[in-house]
Deep mutational scan, measured.
Amino acid sequence: SADYSSLTVVQLKDLLTKRNLSVGGLKNEWVQRLIKDDEES
Rank of each mutant, 00 (worst) to 15 (best):
W30Y: 05
V23K: 07
L26E: 15
L21H: 05
Q32Y: 06
S22V: 03
V9C: 12
V10W: 12
D37L: 05
R33W: 05
D3P: 11
L7S: 01
Y4G: 01
S5D: 10
V9Q: 09
V9Y: 11
E40C: 09
G24D: 15
L12H: 00
S41H: 15
Y4D: 00
E29Y: 03
L7Y: 08
L15E: 08
E29T: 06
E39T: 08
E39V: 09
D3R: 12
I35M: 12
L26V: 11
R33C: 06
W30H: 04
T17P: 02
L15I: 12
T17V: 14
G24E: 15
D38N: 04
S41E: 08
L16W: 00
I35V: 10
D3N: 10
G25S: 02
V9N: 11
V9A: 12
L21D: 05
L7K: 04
N20H: 11
L12N: 00
R19H: 05
R33I: 06
K36Q: 12
K13T: 07
N28T: 11
G24N: 15
G24L: 14
S22Y: 06
E40P: 04
L16S: 01
N20C: 11
R33Y: 04
S1M: 14
L16E: 02
N28M: 10
I35F: 06
N20Q: 09
S5I: 08
V23W: 07
G25W: 04
Q11V: 05
A2K: 13
A2H: 12
L16G: 00
D3T: 10
Y4T: 00
V31R: 01
S22F: 06
K27Q: 09
R33L: 07
V31E: 04
N20A: 08
V10M: 13
N28I: 11
Y4R: 00
G25N: 02
L7R: 02
W30E: 06
V9E: 15
L12D: 01
S41M: 11
S6N: 10
S41Y: 10
L34D: 02
R19I: 05
E39S: 08
K27S: 06
L15M: 10
S22N: 08
Y4V: 00
S1T: 12
V31F: 04
D38S: 03
L34P: 02
V23N: 06
R33T: 05
K13W: 11
V31C: 05
V9R: 08
R33S: 06
D14R: 08
R33F: 04
K27D: 04
E39I: 14
K27V: 13
L34T: 00
L12I: 07
S6P: 00
L34I: 04
V23F: 09
N28F: 12
L26D: 15
L7C: 09
S1E: 09
L15C: 07
Y4K: 01
D38V: 03
V9K: 08
T17E: 12
L16H: 02
T8S: 12
W30V: 03
Q11W: 02
L12G: 00
S6F: 07
I35D: 05
D38L: 06
L26Y: 07
R33G: 04
W30S: 00
R33K: 05
V9D: 13
D14Q: 10
T8F: 02
S5V: 08
D3L: 11
K36M: 11
V31A: 03
L16Y: 01
N28C: 10
L15W: 03
L21V: 04
L26T: 15
L15Y: 04
S22G: 09
E40G: 10
G24C: 15
L7F: 10
A2N: 12
D14F: 10
S41V: 11
Q11T: 04
S22L: 06
G24K: 14
A2P: 14
L15V: 04
S1H: 12
S6R: 11
D14M: 10
L15G: 00
L15K: 02
R19K: 06
K18P: 00
L34K: 00
V23E: 06
V31D: 02
V9S: 13
K13E: 07
G25C: 06
L16V: 02
K36W: 09
Q32F: 07
K36C: 12
K27F: 13
E40K: 14
R33V: 05
T8R: 03
L7T: 00
L34A: 01
R19W: 03
S41G: 08
K13S: 06
D37M: 05
E39G: 08
D38C: 05
S41P: 07
L34S: 00
G25I: 01
L7W: 11
N28Y: 14
S1I: 14
N28W: 15
D14S: 08
T17D: 08
K27P: 15
E40S: 12
L15F: 04
G25P: 01
D14A: 12
E39D: 08
D3Q: 11
S6L: 11
L15S: 02
D3K: 14
L34E: 02
Q32S: 10
E39W: 11
L21Q: 01
S5F: 13
L26M: 13
K13G: 02
A2G: 10
V9H: 09
T17C: 13
A2Q: 12
I35T: 08
L15A: 05
K18L: 10
S1C: 10
E39H: 12
S5E: 13
V10A: 15
R33H: 04
S6Y: 07
T17I: 14
D38Q: 04
L15R: 01
L7M: 15
K36N: 09
L16P: 00
T8P: 04
S1D: 06
L7N: 01
E40A: 09
W30Q: 07
K27M: 13
K36R: 12
G25H: 03
S6H: 12
N20V: 03
V23L: 14
W30P: 00
A2W: 13
K27R: 08
D37A: 11
S1F: 14
R19G: 06
D37Q: 09
V10R: 13
